[in-house]
Design a protein around this nucleic acid. Structure first.
Length: 734
RNA sequence: GGGCAGUUAGUUCAAUGGUAGAACGUCUGUUUUACACACAGAAGGUUGUAGGUCCGAUUCCUACACUGCCCACCA
């Protein structure tokens, strides 16, 4: 495309057309690159999957710009370069969003039923799920769109289910009744990584539990008196001398009269409260673990909607907050309330909807993490994968070395249904999420070993258990991260896996080191036998100028598309990279304006050179660009130096440094100094031709160096240089 | 509670064991035939606080304060 070099540079006139040309060229697909030799190395970057619910925010803009830089750089260096894009079905986020929409239309997923609801989400995904991809294209992202994958594509889903079967066959997946973090609004279990914590002004209540033998009482502290209805023990620390003589005795639980034991447990902190804790295995995860150790009963008094159930007697049907007040009042009347004081503490809330988490018992599926975590640790310790900046290795190791088994089931409708098939005759209750919710008053928790189900990707033709039922699939779906953990290979076709696995780099934000990076690493090792990539780079977090988090709900976000519209994609890319020097970026819009000015500077410098191109392309190619003057020598020396520096910086993921050095070179060394000097040299017959050749060679080389950072303006200029030939700058040899 | 990072010009950030740099902003001048989204020049900083090591610290060490994030979750 020959561009009209009217001034100044107008990104709107060139960006859409250039991007279309790149798409049409097919060069985003490594199979179409003109690779000279089979020995040429691959360079593969796995894109962090944007959610189908997502729209582009500054974090995406930064993250994808950095990836695009390293991808474009390697493509120009001649690598067989693949940037693999995809979208994530984002179970809870998407379901939440679609449900919210349904609510506006005065209906709900329950009214639609599962099948219709899932169809509805698919239609929603077809309509809106690609928005973010179009936005990425505006940014200039050079991913191979022909390989785009969605985590619920048929082929991808097959790999997800096969992974489940694989783990099950290894004996690493088990099913158990556990007290888990439950969001009453979303109606699903949540993993620890899906919780957020919010400070809550509550009350610390001191409850007096009388000893059954009438010899006194023991006082426990709690923020949730209503759960006392489900207490099945009082626990103290074995080292706590104050209570030593009480251990083994029983107390008579107020209001209910139930007798419950006093037990010892090391997890109790003697210095907090009274040092004695009420134990409610059904409604507290730590208490559940204590219950397991002491073989305590689990009595559920709160249901999956966050209301008191029939085990709560007269309080049944009340919301927990209502029950809290009622129970506290009753305790006070009965003389069981020793004291109360205001108390600020953290409550866990759902990361998605913000509702307070209610720990409740339910049947969930778990993946044993011991070996997987060990493998992931080994991969980083041995240097097979390198995490940069290095201090993030600590985040990685800390989590893996203190790993708990992974709750992989979610009670959602949108996602990969577990490849688990239940015998209809054997048990109906097994397939229910709440085997204990309504009926059972008391129950000892045991991990069921009863084989009333079969694990298989496909539905078994005949039930191997009762021999004559039509088996039903588990209603649970898998944690979204279970599927995205497989991205480096499940995102590739079978033949691509041979060619393009393992890859090289992942660039992402620090908050998904644990949910995603660690899991991709152990999944890659487990299923492909190789660490999926050698480099992890953690990019900074963009905050507002005054250091607050950017968020839609706070109204503190800024829209990268607005910048692209107003200043151009290159200017936007310039701004995010320019500022990406540390862990946190205090976003300054002024940098975008600076980026636009730089585009214009490049544009105008090119105009000057174009007016002074050597008469023939051959000359311009630099054959006779031998320096004659000091200025000539200096600029060529600086050019060679900046080239080396840029290579080094990019390869070390020091993008801001690379860009700032390039900026300095181009603006000050080239434009301010050489270009000005060249005006004199052009006026002199003796130096005219050499100067033209050096100008052309320098601008040509500068465009190459700048291209990964500012691809549009450089490509547009390149196509107007006589010396450039017909090939795209995008694939011009570095 | 534990950890990580940061605190330098008006603002956003660099840099260095030996008198601190850029971008943007500000001020002065310039329509010099690539660019006023420009050019030439200028002002602007006892480098968070308090100690310590050193001939010398903004840089290394210690403590403290503040900010952001991550992890844990004490009932």
């Amino acid at each position: 495309m020959k561009t009209d070099f009217s001034k100044p540079y107008d990104p709107k006139l060139v960006e859409p057309e250039i991007y279309q040309q790149w798409l049409d060229s097919g060069y985003f697909n490594p199979d179409n690159l003109k690779i000279k030799s089979l020995k040429i190395k691959n360079y593969i970057v796995y894109m962090p999957l944007p959610n189908v619910t997502g729209t582009l925010h500054m974090g995406h803009a930064l993250n994808n710009t950095l990836q695009d830089i390293i991808v474009r750089y390697h493509r120009m260096r001649g690598y067989r370069t693949l940037w693999l894009p995809g979208t994530d079905h984002a179970g809870i986020a998407t379901q939440y969003k679609v449900e919210k929409e349904l609510r506006k239309k005065d209906t709900s997923r329950f009214e639609l039923g599962r099948e219709k609801f899932v169809e509805h989400v698919w239609r929603w995904k077809e309509e809106y799920g690609g928005i973010i991809l179009d936005q990425l294209k505006k940014l200039g992202v050079s991913a191979d769109w022909s390989r785009l994958r969605f985590t619920m594509d048929e082929a991808y889903a097959k790999d997800v289910l096969a992974a489940f079967v694989h783990y099950y066959d290894k004996g690493w997946i088990y099913r158990g009744l556990r007290t888990v973090n439950w969001c009453p609004r979303c109606g699903t279990s949540l993993s620890e990584l899906e919780l957020e914590h919010r400070e809550d002004q509550g009350t610390l209540w001191y409850l007096k539990y009388p000893l059954a033998d009438g010899s006194g009482s023991i006082v426990v502290a709690t923020t949730r008196p209503e759960t006392m209805l489900g207490d099945t023990a009082v626990a103290v620390n074995p080292k706590d001398k104050r209570y030593a003589k009480l251990v083994g005795k029983t107390v008579k639980l107020p209001l209910t009269g139930r007798e419950i034991p006093i037990v010892e447990d090391l997890k109790i902190d003697p210095s907090f409260g009274t040092g004695a804790v009420k134990v409610t295995p059904a409604h507290d995860i730590l208490d559940f673990e204590i219950g397991q150790r002491h073989n305590l009963e689990t009595i559920q008094v709160i249901d999956d909607r966050g209301k008191m159930n029939e085990n709560a007697g007269e309080y049944a049907g009340l919301k927990t907050e209502e029950a809290r007040a009622a129970v506290a009042a009753k305790l006070q009347d009965g003389g069981f309330l020793e004291n109360k004081e205001p108390y600020a503490h953290n409550v866990a809330v759902c990361y998605r909807c913000g509702h307070v988490i209610e720990p409740i018992p339910s049947t969930q599926w778990f993946l044993k993490m011991e070996t997987l975590a060990k493998n992931a640790v080994k991969a980083a310790k041995s240097g097979k994968v390198k995490i940069r900046p290095e201090n993030f290795e600590k985040t990685y190791f800390d989590w893996l070395l203190n790993i708990r088994d992974w709750t992989i089931s979610r009670q959602l409708w949108w996602g990969h249904q577990l490849p688990v098939w239940f015998c209809k005759n054997q048990t109906e209750i097994s397939n229910s999420q709440f085997p204990i919710s309504n009926k059972n008053l008391k129950l000892k928790i045991k991990n069921s070993s009863a084989e009333d189900f079969v694990v298989s990707v496909k539905k078994p033709a005949a039930c191997p258990i009762c021999k004559n039922c039509d088996m039903v699939q588990s209603v649970d779906v898998l944690d979204t991260w279970f599927s995205s953990a497989l991205w480096p290979f499940a995102g590739l076709s079978a033949s691509d896996r041979k060619k393009y696995y393992p890859g090289n780099a992942v660039i992402t934000a620090r908050d998904i080191i644990n949910p995603w990076i660690t899991r991709m690493i152990f999944s890659g090792i487990e299923f492909m036998g190789k660490v999926p990539f050698s480099d992890v780079f953690i990019n900074g977090t963009i905050l507002t100028k005054d250091g607050r988090r950017m968020s839609k709900s706070l109204g503190t976000g800024v829209d990268p598309l607005k910048y692209i519209e107003q200043y151009g994609a290159d200017a936007t890319r310039f701004a995010v990279v320019w500022q990406a020097t540390g862990q946190d970026i205090h976003w300054d819009e002024a940098a975008v304006a600076a980026g636009r000015k730089f585009c214009n500077k490049i544009w105008n410098a090119a105009r000057f050179v174009l007016q002074n191109e050597p008469s023939s392309a051959a000359l311009a190619k630099g054959g006779n660009a031998k320096p004659q003057t000091t200025a000539d020598k200096e600029i060529l020396g600086k050019l060679a130096k900046i080239k080396k520096e840029t290579e080094k910086s990019i390869e070390q993921f020091e993008f801001a440094k690379a860009l700032q050095n390039l900026y300095d070179f181009f603006w000050h060394d080239f434009c301010d100094v050489y270009l000005e000097e060249s005006k004199k040299q052009l006026a002199n017959k003796d130096t005219e031709e050499t100067t033209k050749a050096i100008l052309t060679a320098t601008i040509g080389e500068s465009l190459i160096l700048l291209h990964p950072f500012m691809p549009f303006v450089t490509e547009a200029i390149h196509q107007n240089l006589k010396s450039a030939g017909d090939e795209f700058l995008m694939i011009t040899a570095w």
